[in-house]
Structure formats: C-alpha cells, structure tokens
Design a protein around this nucleic acid. Structure first.
Lengths: 208, 208
DNA sequence: GTCTATATTTCGATAGAC
DNA sequence: GTCTATCGAAATATAGAC
C-alpha cells in the first residue's frame, strides 16, 4: 500500500487540534506524547511541527481559542436588560449550555493551567477573570436593585461558576436526568444561592 | 563533605510522601519525575523504591490516605442531630475547614483520578461517593422535615460540594477576606441554595 | 508536506557494591 | 539503606531526502 505523498495541510491542521483536544482532555497534557497525537492524526510525529511551534504552543492555542469562544458567545448571547434575576438566570443557562457543548475544552481550560508557561498563564488568567466579572456585574446590579442578595459579589461569582462548571464532571447524556432538567435544577439552586426571592411555587418541585 | 552512609528509613519514608504530595499538587503527577522527588527528599532516585513499589502506588497511597482521613474526620466531627439546617451548616463548615488545611491533598484527590489504574480508580471513586452520600443524607432529611428544599438531593449534593471545594482554587491566607469570613459567606450561600428558610436578618450582611 | 532517521534527554525501574 | 551505574524505553524536536 503506497503512502500518499501529496499535501493535506488543509485537513491535517484542524485534525491536529481536534485530536490534541480530545487526548489532552482524556489523559492530561503531560501524559500525552506528540507521537500519540501524530498516530491518531495519521502522520509522523515530526510532521506535527509544521502546524505548531511546539507542544506548549499547541496547548496554549487550544486554551486561548476556548476562552475567546466563551467570551464571544457570551457577548452575542442576547442577554436581557433590567431585572438582575433574569440576567442571572440567562447567565446560568448560557454557561451550562455552552460548557456542555464543549466538555473537552472546558476540562482542559481549568485542568491544564499549571502546564502553561508563566506568560501564557497570565494571558489565560486574564481572560478567565474577564468572564467572572461578567457574572459579578450582574450580582452587583441585583444587589443595588435589591432583587439579589449575596454577602460578597466577587466571592459569590467564583462560587457560582464553580458550581455550574461542576456539572461537567458528572453529567452524561442518557443518564437519570435530561440535559434540560439538569439545567433547570441548577438554575433554581443558583438563583436561591444568590438570594433571589423564591418564585411562586418554589416550595414544590420546579415545573417540567 | 562526606555523605551519610547510615540508615534513615524512619524519616525518608514520611519525607517521600510529603515531597510527592507537594510536587504532584504543584505540577501534576505526570509532569513530576521520580528523580525530582528524590532530589528534594535528598536521596538518589533508586532509593525511593525502598519505600514505594512504583510511581503509581505512590499516587494511590496519597489519594487513599486523604480520602480515609476525610471520612474518619467526618465520623469524629460531632455532627449535631435533628434539624437538617444545622446538620447542613455543620457539614459545610467541616468541609471548608478540613479541605483548607489539606489543600495539596484535596487538589490531587480530584485532579489525578485519571492517572490511576482502573482498579485504583474504582477504590477512590467508591470513597468519594461515600462522602457525597453523607451530604445527600442530610439533604434528604431536610426535604422530609420540610426545613430544606432541593429539587434533587443527589444532584444538589454534587453541586454543593463542587461549590465548597472551589474555595481551594482561589483562597490564599492574607487576602482580602479572612478564613472565617469566607467560611461564613459560603455557609450562607450553601444554606440558601439548599432552600433553607433565610434566618432573621439575612437580608443584611451576615454578622461578624 | 511528509517522510525516515536520528540527536539528545529524560524517564521508570533494577542490579550489585558497600 | 543508600549508593553508583545502567538498562531499555520513550520523550521532544530537528535534519535532510524526496
């Protein structure tokens, strides 16, 4: 079986990124070798260096692309204005849905921070904080309005994001609860944790 | 400077474990070499194998010891009986305090699961679930009493633990908020998220 | 653009001297 | 019990042929 001598740069580039994303998420950056990635892409290890300067740049590009995508999607998410309770619910639903659709990238984005060089770490840290501040602004507005009640907006933002991102650590499609049901339950807990006055009927099971 | 030829097994064993815990937490299991550990312990790499069968056993022992310690400390924590709200507050405070005192072990315990062999993974997974079930039992009791209100006890248990454990990702001694203040804020959010009726005065800042 | 071949390091783990 | 020395495998990355 003769090997293909032709150029396939247009598909090898994207393939490299998608394979690396999957393997880094499954086994961890440090545990995955360039040879493993190359084998799954279908090229030799040396060929990968046509598409990435080195292994570190590959990790950084994946993580930066993810954070850029999160912030861009949030900016385009048609957030409601006014009532902070509605804005908080919108944020929670956005976060859960966006992150559910990109489980591998999410996992890498917060598991592999320590494998970044200091310079790359600083860039990602800044993007992450920018996202946190979006939530914090909602909590501050709610506090000012009196529709939300959190003891400390900065701390609450981190706590709520930790809770929401935690969905990814256990949720599997086809389990006991549907994706929509899980989303509703988390939204309920987030609103309560943020001190939103319980909506009518919240003493019973939430609808659906 | 002559090298010590004598036996120091009594201190090298514990030193190995404490160095490995610190380095695994900082750089990740896969990124730390036995040579690095040996260098910090102050022995040659080969000498480590007198105290551990291999690198995998070293990781597993650290993780299992941690989970055993969590469960033992919880069992001895003098949990109150009766009112589920008080039991939930006790759990939250226990969790934050115990985990704050063992940040490295906590970090490893949930970051390095994927680096365990399947057999070792199963053992740790079981211990982790046992701990989750302690919280779930409290939530179920509160649901039955009517003092707590969560849409799904199993899911709420995971969500609350994710939120509480998240403290470790950002808290540093000497920051804007004291350890006790952070604990109070998290307890407040946990109780609210679990649907505990707000205590008198919770509309203002909590005391302290 | 992809290949083979390889330079260079470093890895986990072991053997045998003392 | 710790050392030196080392095995065999695998790592990242590069050089040069085609």
């Amino acid at each position: 079986m003769a090997r293909k001598p032709g150029s396939r740069a247009d598909i090898t580039g994207p393939r490299l990124r998608e394979v690396a994303l999957r393997l880094f998420a499954r086994d961890g950056y440090a545990a995955v070798s360039m040879r493993q990635i190359a084998a799954e892409v279908g090229v030799q290890a040396g060929a990968l260096y046509l598409y990435t300067a080195d292994k570190q740049s590959l990790l950084f590009d994946l993580m930066k692309s993810h954070m850029d995508a999160v912030l861009a999607a949030w900016a385009e998410s048609a957030a409601p204005e006014g009532d902070a309770k509605l804005r908080l619910e919108h944020f929670a639903r956005f976060h859960i849905r966006f992150h559910a659709a990109r489980a591998d990238a999410v996992f890498i984005a917060y598991m592999e921070m320590r494998n970044l060089t200091p310079e790359n770490f600083a860039v990602l840290e800044d993007l992450r904080k920018r996202y946190e501040r979006e939530l914090e602004a909602i909590l501050q507005a709610g506090q000012a309005e009196g529709t939300l009640n959190v003891p400390d907006t900065k701390l609450a933002a981190m706590a709520l994001i930790a809770m929401l991102t935690g969905v990814n650590t256990w949720f599997r499609e086809g389990g006991r609860l549907s994706r929509d049901r899980v989303e509703d339950i988390y939204v309920d807990m987030v609103l309560k944790a943020a001190g939103a006055q319980a909506p009518a009927g919240s003493g019973e099971n939430i609808s659906r």
